[in-house]
Nucleic acid binder design. Structure first.
Lengths: 216, 216
DNA sequence: TTGAATACCAAGCGCTTGCTTGGTAGCGTT
DNA sequence: AACGCTACCAAGCAAGCGCTTGGTATTCAA
């Protein structure tokens, strides 16, 4: 059993989101989504993403999980701490997801494409609920919390930078390219809808790849 | 003198922001920034951009122009209306600015480059204070206000779409390309700083152009 | 000289906000 | 049976919020 899980973990791309979450929970890197704290974090991720951090009240959040607002502060010390914890867990999960997607890809070009698709899936599928919060609500965090999240964020960005460098994208150094790309991709949250019978995520990935990847 | 101004207006790219604002005020399209209402709108644009709409209180805004909070509602019916008016005036000004920049450019490629540079200047120079609000605070507007702003926004976007189409950018239809671009460019607000002795705006324009324009 | 319009003050209302406090029900351990 | 721990409720506080009301000083046209 353990060995079987190891094998599956080796080909992580084949892991379902639930499997990946389970593995990360076991390692103690994520909060169990079935626990009271975990349910609060998931609900907060959804609400902060839908309505924005400052337009979400602790009463909204409490109602979402079926408790009273005061009870939230048995699990968290402040509303801002909830945002911080959400961002940290979202980052950890998105990193693990993208790393496994990149590992599955063979060529540098495919790795870059995997990054793009992984981030788009994180934003639009249920893959990583709350991912867009990372960009949209950054200013709602205190300086102290920003530093905490940034430590985890660096891992995530390093995967991107490696992919961009290896693929030899145009537009100068990888940092600038990545920053332009994170803007382009995260902004899709406000206009791209999966359900409409228009663009699909793989198609949108293609468009972005055509733009950012080197044209031969 | 008047003729001289006319000549300069003909080559509108040479107009200073103050001249352009003056012309638009004369046409009744913008509020006079020297009027009480105009000073409130300018202060609101600065504050909403710096701190975000919901983190800016009417008391903050009142203090910024040196009046009491209640006096604001002599000029506006609600805080949200202020945001709406700011967005409308910002859009009108940015449209006029970009149109003149595009008219000055000769080739389709130069027109696209002019669009990119104009939008980056709008975001980062004092050129169009509050421009980033258009993207960042969109969700803070009511549906009704969104429609009002959208009418003006369409003009602005049409300039972009024409430029993208004429320049034959990769990445499929112009609408998607523009949407990826607006994300990339507006997100620069949170990482690009003019003062640092790093990238300049023309240099950043080049990077973005290299990415989005067709490579030969 | 009067009257209307503009721009603002002074005071505060009603509501919502994040958060606190004191207490309790359920549960597993000893 | 007694304990301690977790998870929660019930009630509400203090502060801050957008906004209202009634009144005043200044300006300018009639």
């Amino acid at each position: 059993m353990q060995e079987g899980a190891q094998v599956i973990a080796g080909v992580q791309g084949a892991m379902s989101p639930q499997q990946l979450i389970g593995a990360l929970v076991k390692k103690g890197e994520l909060t169990d989504p079935a626990s009271p704290r975990g349910r609060l974090l998931n609900a907060a991720a959804r609400l902060f993403e839908q309505k924005g951090f400052s337009r979400t009240t602790v009463r909204d959040l409490a109602a979402e999980v079926g408790i009273l607002s005061g009870s939230i502060f048995h699990h968290f010390s402040s509303k801002e701490q909830i945002l911080c914890e959400v961002m940290k867990e979202v980052t950890i999960f998105a990193s693990a997801r993208m790393r496994s997607a990149v590992e599955q890809a063979a060529s540098p070009q495919e790795k870059l494409r995997a990054c793009i698709q992984s981030e788009l899936e994180a934003i639009h599928e249920r893959a990583v609920p709350g991912f867009s919060i990372l960009v949209m609500e950054w200013r709602s965090l205190s300086d102290k919390s920003q530093k905490e999240v940034l430590l985890l964020r660096d891992e995530y960005e390093q995967i991107w930078l490696d992919a961009i460098n290896s693929a030899h994208c145009p537009g100068g150094d990888a940092t600038v390219v990545r920053r332009l790309m994170v803007g382009a991709l995260s902004h899709t949250y406000s206009w791209f809808k999966v359900r409409e019978n228009g663009l699909t995520i793989p198609e949108l990935t293609d468009r972005a790849y055509q733009i950012f990847a080197p044209k031969i």
